[in-house]
Design a binder for these strands. Structure first.
Length: 291
DNA sequence: AACCAGGACACAA
DNA sequence: TTGTGTCATGGT
């Protein structure tokens, strides 16, 4: 059991804003670092001025594969995404958006595992982020696999597979405090594990078709589908509209009028450009922290 | 104590 | 097409 380190030089990457902005639910800040799980790997990340320092563990000491296979982490963090290009694609005359960007420049979008993201957001409906974190944590402790961790570190578990959750009873899931979301998660886990939907195949589809497949799952409407499309599949135009974004759109862009939901939807899909999903994340974070 | 939370769904008008 | 009640649970 050996601690392995890797440094990723990157500018404009705000680790805290990114990991705590409600797109992923398994990151904890522990004395200056962020600890979490990506796939089957325990990870510790530390913000440096000129990049990110990553630590993980390797079961077999001296194995070169650990050092050379940080690609999964590079991909998850989207280190190679050029943030300046994305920010330049935003409408320049949009004062509220530019304010939001200025207030938390370095906020990024992650590239998560589709199943974990889908399951997590099924649990997210009308729950506060802290509660989602608690439910996900219980789910992992009870049904995930124990992972390799550093010496004297408390145990950490993987996010349970769809196959594992499909074998749970509804009551076992309810006992993780997810309430009425339990039957939805269970039914979706069964559909994923028996092949009624093939999550891997959605990468190749255009946005609308991928969304249509997700919305067919129990407990998944447009908002949750867009979260998965944006945070896992990397569709940059996906624009999840939750209560916070609704508030942001109304009070920042239509302060006097009372636009219909349809009008707001149209606005969100035409005004923000090809990276609307990023704009959405900046507005979301801005509303939750600065106002 | 009342109100709300990264909603979805069935059903009414 | 748009509006309302319901579903659990815990934080503020």
């Amino acid at each position: 059991m050996k601690l392995v380190e890797q440094f990723f030089p990157v500018c404009d990457y705000d680790l805290a804003a990114t990991l705590a902005s409600g797109q992923a639910f398994r990151w904890k800040e522990i004395d200056g670092s962020w600890e979490g799980v990506i796939g089957e790997n325990w990870v510790r990340l530390k913000q440096e001025v000129d990049g990110i320092l990553a630590q993980t563990v390797c079961l077999k000491a001296g194995q070169a594969s650990c050092l050379s296979c940080f690609d999964w982490l590079r991909d998850y963090l989207q280190i190679d995404a050029d943030l300046s290009v994305i920010l330049r694609s935003f409408p320049l005359d949009d004062v509220p958006l530019q304010t939001a960007v200025t207030s938390c420049r370095g906020l990024r979008l992650l590239r998560q595992d589709p199943w974990e993201c889908l399951a997590s957001f099924i649990l997210s409906s009308t729950k506060q982020i802290v509660q989602i974190q608690q439910i996900v944590s219980l789910l992992c402790e009870r049904f995930g696999k124990p992972l390799a961790v550093p010496e004297n570190h408390p145990p950490v578990f993987s996010f349970p597979s769809a196959e594992r959750l499909a074998t749970c009873t509804e009551q076992e899931l309810r006992d993780c405090k997810m309430g009425f979301r339990a039957p939805n998660l269970l039914a979706t886990a069964k559909m994923v594990s028996n092949g009624e939907i093939h999550l891997q195949s959605l990468y190749a589809l255009p946005l609308e078709k991928a969304r249509a497949e997700l919305v067919a799952l129990p407990g998944v409407g447009k908002k949750i589908a867009d979260c998965v499309l944006l945070f896992a599949y990397g569709f940059p135009q996906a624009f999840p509209i939750d209560v916070w974004i609704l508030k942001a759109l109304r009070q920042l862009y239509f302060p006097k009028r009372k636009p219909t939901a349809k009008r707001l939807l149209h606005f969100s899909q035409t005004h923000f450009g090809p990276n609307a999903g990023y704009a959405q994340q900046y507005l979301f974070h801005y509303m939750r922290t600065k106002i």
